[in-house]
Write a protein that binds this DNA or RNA. Structure first.
Lengths: 112, 112
DNA sequence: GCTTCATTTCGATAGTTCTCGAAATATCTA
DNA sequence: TAGATATTTCGAGAACTATCGAAATGAAGC
């Protein structure tokens, strides 16, 4: 993961409502949540939430998909893996502190 | 680690010069680097760098210590552990993807 | 094709962040 | 205490970010 991508991802998560939205999407799993569902959950006006979802999308942290009239958002686990991987390799102790971390939707726990 | 602390830490790292400074400090290890050394490394005016170091300090990611005329900065590994831990627990797949990650100055690699 | 529902884009406003030179502060040496 | 060195704080300007109502877009159902 390139430093510039990392900066955009960190910036996207560094905001109360966006962090909350992302956490909600992670909890929701593969099914994702509609924009409306997130707005209600976070108690935010639609237009405000839309702005934040756009930031997260732009940072490559979430995915958008139309289902009927609704736009369904879901967390991009690969991007999150990349981010955490970068932090561990570059911002932890010189060398990575634990190699090969992988996050996924399934319950597989890949601890060596 | 509390969500608010996490947001401050993410925001602190979400900036080109600050991410670079933090990485430099991580690489420097326990000895740390003086403000001047970092400024030269990053090719930044002292006052600009000072601003960024203040942000990182404020976010609790780095530590300051006076050594003679110089102020020596060093990475706070515990804070970084906390941040990565939070991301893995809350922003990875529902449950944490790997438990008990620890970063430290020594070369100990605590992979199960 | 008109209506309804879900969501985004626009526009204006307020607030925050970044940048960097100049001035201030703190420490050491003689 | 004067002079040099290391760094921070101040101040002002430009750039970006967040907020939210109102208007626009897109899809579905009748």
């Amino acid at each position: 993961m390139h430093a510039n991508t990392v900066i955009r991802a960190l910036g996207a998560l560094a905001q109360e409502h966006r962090l909350a939205a992302f956490r909600a999407l992670v909890q929701a799993g593969a099914d994702g949540l509609s924009a409306g569902a997130i707005a209600e959950k976070l108690q935010l006006p639609n237009s405000s939430l839309s702005f934040h979802l756009a930031q997260l999308t732009n940072a490559g942290l979430i995915l958008q998909e139309r289902r009927g009239r609704s736009l369904i958002y879901s967390a991009d686990y690969a991007a999150m893996n990349g981010l955490i991987g970068y932090l561990m390799e570059n911002c932890c102790a010189g060398a990575a502190c634990t190699p090969d971390v992988t996050c996924s939707l399934s319950e597989e726990r890949n601890v060596a």
